[in-house]
Design a protein around this nucleic acid. Structure first.
Length: 405
RNA sequence: GCUGGGAUAGCGAAGUGGUCAAACGCAUCAGACUGUAAAUCUGCCGGCUCACGCCUUCGUAGGUUCGACUCCUACUCCCAGCACCA
């Protein structure tokens, strides 16, 4: 498939500035994709964008990945409220973490350079910036932006000059990369499209050259209607200390049948023929969740590696089997359990173990779970605060586990 | 700068001296049902406690009162209008 065909087939197709999408097939270009270090891990929303980047790279494009040490100090305006400024220490820490993840999931060589816009912004002086960049922007257009309109005026929560100016910073990045690295294409999620056009505008204005932006749709959770990984509470992180490999795999396993097609296309490298086979097999018996299992295994492999993905799959098979027999666990299985879930030592009350493994936040909550029929030990529902004297598998709710050594 | 309005739990939003840990909605969490899905129904839903109960919250800091989310003062931030500037 040509790049343009593949992008459309995979669903990486939203707004862009191209005359025609087939222009992408002509000659490989240098592109950049960036994110701000506003958290210490990427999530699956970023992953979709990175899979799109990888698609370009497979077709010969040269990637520049940017972690926004400068933009992160301001924060991209949300359309609801002003962000709290991140501490500089935190930003520095986050930058390192994100850079590592980008290298990992894009399967870039270890020495791949991750750009940091702080490197050039730390040199930028305010007056020259206003004279060169500030002058290029019309206040009318800046005010016209939808999120600005949401933030100011009645019912709005206000917006600071700092956040208001964010788009100038990101626009300048594009200009800078155009000048220094011949980058004339920016890839982004649809929510960043406006910021991309700021850069295009600058490049046109100051360099009299045409640059392009290409965005992919935001991945929307059909259930909540919100974009993936948005709200902190239920974000699915790529960092296994924030979202365990098991939980990551389980997230995909729990997707609905309707979403299989689009997630396979976006998040895995399946070919059309392969996908057809997978879906056909899935539809023979949807309740067996063949599609979800395959999806989970593949995406988990991209993020955490083949071995971890297979472990998560194996563990899930065992834990959700109808007739699990915990006495048949061998040492390897036990080791896997201990690695995958929080652990506690035997010889304690069940409520204490629940607290120690963070399955419950307090003894009171532990008791509530027990009386609410939410806890099982080795597959048996337990409602009393019994003593746990043997190695056991504790389960809370549908898929929260802990292991007692 | 002036005038008026506002700041309540994860979010939205009631509450205008005691019956407020705070209505209601959403989200989360748990249960039933199920395909580890969706929809639906049920419960929980500031923290701690086996529990009577105790502790901490209603922008911040003080004050009045037996008692304050509710009244007063100052401050911070937001919104609107006006003024200033142009």
């Amino acid at each position: 498939m040509k790049l343009s065909e593949e992008l459309q087939w995979r669903g990486f197709y939203a707004e862009n500035t191209l005359e025609d999408i087939t222009d992408l097939d002509k000659a490989p270009r240098n592109f950049y994709w960036g994110t701000d270090p506003s958290a210490d891990s990427l999530h699956i929303g970023h992953l979709a964008a990175l899979m799109m980047c990888a698609c370009f790279v497979r077709h010969g494009y040269t990637p520049y990945y940017l972690v926004g040490g400068a933009t992160g100090q301001i924060g991209d305006p949300k359309d609801t409220v002003e962000r709290d400024l991140k501490g500089l220490d935190e930003i520095a820490k986050n930058k390192v973490a994100l850079a590592k993840q980008i290298v990992k999931v894009t399967h870039s060589p270890e020495n791949t350079e991750i750009l940091d816009n702080y490197d050039w912004f730390s040199e930028v002086k305010f007056l020259p910036f206003l004279r060169e960049i500030g002058k290029a922007f019309s206040m009318t257009q800046l005010l016209d932006r939808q999120f600005v309109q949401n933030r100011i005026g009645e019912g709005g929560s206000g917006i600071s000059y700092a956040e208001f100016s964010y788009t100038l910073i990101q626009g300048y990045d594009f200009l800078h990369l155009f000048r220094t690295h011949n980058v004339d294409l920016q890839l982004c999620g649809a929510d960043q499209y406006g910021n991309c056009t700021s850069g295009i505008h600058l490049i046109k204005r100051l360099e009299d050259a045409k640059a392009d932006a290409y965005s992919c749709p935001l991945v929307i959770d059909k259930v909540t209607g919100r974009k993936f990984g948005k709200s902190e509470g239920n974000a699915v992180w790529l960092d296994s200390t924030k979202t365990s490999v098991f939980d990551f795999y389980q997230f995909w396993l729990n997707q609905s049948d309707d979403d299989l097609d689009r997630f396979f296309k976006m998040y895995t490298l399946v070919t059309p023929e392969e996908l057809e086979q997978i879906l056909a097999k899935h539809n023979e018996n949807p309740s067996a969740r063949f599609g979800q299992k395959e999806l989970g295994r593949r995406i988990t492999a991209v993020v955490h590696g083949e071995e971890a993905a297979n472990s998560a799959a194996k563990l899930s098979e065992f834990l959700f089997a109808k007739d699990q027999d915990f006495t048949q666990l061998d040492d390897n299985d036990r080791k896997l359990l201990a690695e995958s879930f929080p652990t506690a030592d035997k010889g304690q009350k069940l409520s204490e173990i629940l607290v120690a493994t963070e399955l419950a936040s307090s003894k009171g909550e532990a008791r509530k779970f027990l009386s609410g029929n939410a806890i099982s030990v080795n597959g048996q529902k337990v409602t009393e605060d019994i003593d746990i004297t043997e190695p056991s598998l504790i389960k809370r709710g549908k898929n929260k586990f802990a292991y007692v050594k």
